[in-house]
């Protein structure tokens, strides 16, 4: 099992996340796409840590911080979606095109 196969899996996950973020019109699924891209980056961090003989667990620590920040991002993002829905009665990002509140 070489590192390149792992990297390919993570890049596939990244591209699926990108697909979700670009193609979906529902705001929640754009958020889900971003979460998937972050998870793909986390796989890379862990994989590079594992395939490196260095004793310092930097990759693991970065992955933990990334998860914490992704959780904060998801919480604020979903709160924003709920607030927007309450105001405009839609979660379709294509319809959110007014600059005036």
């Amino acid at each position: 099992m070489t590192l390149s196969i792992l990297l390919m899996v993570s890049s596939a996950l990244f591209c699926i996340g990108l697909l979700a973020a670009l193609s979906r019109r529902h705001a929640i699924f754009i958020l889900i796409g971003i979460e998937m891209m972050l998870a793909a980056a986390n796989i890379n961090f862990i994989a590079f840590w594992r395939y490196n003989a260095q004793p310092q667990p930097t990759g693991v620590i970065v992955a933990i911080f990334a998860i914490a920040i992704a959780a904060a991002e998801a919480a604020v993002g979903l709160a924003l979606i709920i607030a927007i829905y309450r105001h405009y009665r839609t979660t379709n990002v294509d319809q959110l095109d007014r600059l005036k509140g």
Partner: peptide
């Protein structure tokens, strides 16, 4: 909200190929 933007597929595939 079932709209799906097919141009995203092209971009995602291009990025995947590059990676």
């Amino acid at each position: 909200l079932r709209g799906f933007n097919w141009s995203g597929v092209v971009v995602a595939l291009a990025v995947f190929a590059g990676l």
